[in-house]
Amino acid sequence: MPRLTTAMIATFTLAPMAAFGATEYPLTLTSCGHEVTFDKAPESVVSVGQSTTEILYMLGLADKVAGTALWINPVLPEFAEADAGVERLADNAPSFESVLAKKPGLVVTAYEWMIGPQGVVGTREMFDDAQIPSWIMPTECVGKDNTQSMDGARSVLFDTALLYQGIEELAAIFDVQDRGAAVIADLKAREAAAVERAQALDLPETVSGLFWYSSAEIEIDPYVAGANGVPGWMMSKLGVRNVVASAEEWPTVGWETISKANPSFIVAAEMNRRRFPADDIAVKRDFLTSDPVTSEMGAVKNDRILTMPANAMDPSVRAIYALESLADSLAGFDLK
C-alpha cells in the first residue's frame, strides 16, 4: 500500500525578520463568539487537542504547556523531546477537574465539542466561572456550524487563512509575535509549493477521491470526509472531485453509495486511537479488499489506497504537509 508520510516535516528555525511590536495588554479577542481578555501573557496553558499543542510547540512555548490531551497520532518528530516532558492528562478527552487541577492561565482547543456549548470537557461558562480563559481555533467556527452535530458542518470550503489567523492570535496572546510571523511565513511558503506541485499534476476532471476516517463498526456506514473540510480543500487544490457532497464535516455514507460513485483513489486515516476497530489501518485495508461491495471498486482493484495521519485530515499544520505527500503519491498512479 502506498503510504503518505511527514518525512519532509518543516523545521522552523525562526530566522530573523522584521520586528513585531510587543502585545499591548489588556488584549481582548473574540473566540468563536466568546470574548476573552488577557491582562498579561499566560504563565501556563492546557491544550486539549494535538493540533493546538503542536502549534504551541512551534511557537517555542513548550515550557508553558502544563498538560495536553486528545492525541490521535504521535507528536511531530521534531517535538518528541519537548513533548516527553509535558504531562498528558488523557489520550482522549480529559475531565474538567483534571484541567482545573493544573491551574492554567489559559486552556486552548481546536474543537467546540471539547470546550463549547455541549463540550465534553466543559463549557466556556464553566471555565469563566473558574477564572480560566478559554480559546478555540477560528478554524472551528468561521464558516462552520457546530449546533447540529458533534463534528459540525461547513458552509464554505476550509481556508488555511483561518489556520494562520489562529497561529497569529496565539502568538499575540503569549507575546511572541516574531515567532508567530516566522512560523506563518514558513507554512505559507510550504503551502504555496505544495499547491504548485498539486496543480502540476494536471489530473483529468474525471478523477475523484474518498477520505475514510473511521467507522463505529466495520461493516456499517463509514465516517467519510464531507465536501468542505480539510480533505475537500486538498482535493480542490488537486483538481479532484470529492465523491461525497455533504456539508457535514464527517458524514456517514453507505458503502453501496460509495461503490456506485467509484472513487479513483481512497485515502484512509491512520491513527493510534483504538476507539473503534476501524481506527486500525490494517482493519480498514482488510475490509476494503475482502468485502464483496468495496473490493469491486476501481481504487481497491488497482491498489490506489493511501494512508494519511488522521490529524492531517483536521484543520492543522499537518494538512499542508499532507497535501505535499498526497500530490507525490497520486503522481505515481496512472490516472490520466
Rank of each mutant, 00 (worst) to 15 (best):
T37N: 06
I184F: 11
L106H: 06
N302G: 00
I320F: 12
Y111C: 00
D280G: 05
V45S: 05
K40S: 13
R275E: 13
V267M: 13
S134L: 00
K40W: 04
G232D: 08
S215W: 07
R190Q: 07
A19K: 15
R179L: 05
L61A: 03
K64G: 03
V65N: 07
M137S: 15
I9E: 15
W113S: 14
D151M: 12
H34S: 08
L210N: 04
D334P: 04
D175L: 09
R88K: 15
T53M: 13
D280V: 01
E270H: 05
R197L: 11
A171R: 07
G105T: 10
V230W: 00
F96C: 11
M313Y: 03
L210V: 04
F333P: 03
S236K: 14
F79G: 02
A216C: 01
T23C: 08
P231E: 10
S134V: 13
P117E: 15
E81T: 12
T257F: 01
Y25C: 01
W113Y: 12
T13N: 12
F38W: 07
D291P: 01
L106N: 04
M17K: 11
L203C: 02
P2V: 10
E217G: 01
L201Q: 11
I136V: 14
N228L: 01
A110I: 00
T123P: 02
E248N: 13
T11K: 11
L306V: 01
A322E: 12
V300Y: 10
P309E: 12
E78Q: 13
E97K: 14
N262C: 09
V283T: 14
V176C: 06
F287W: 15
T28K: 08
Q199Y: 02
T206Q: 08
D145E: 12
D221V: 03
A322M: 10
E87N: 04
V65L: 08
D186N: 11
A327C: 05
E125F: 02
V283D: 00
I258R: 05
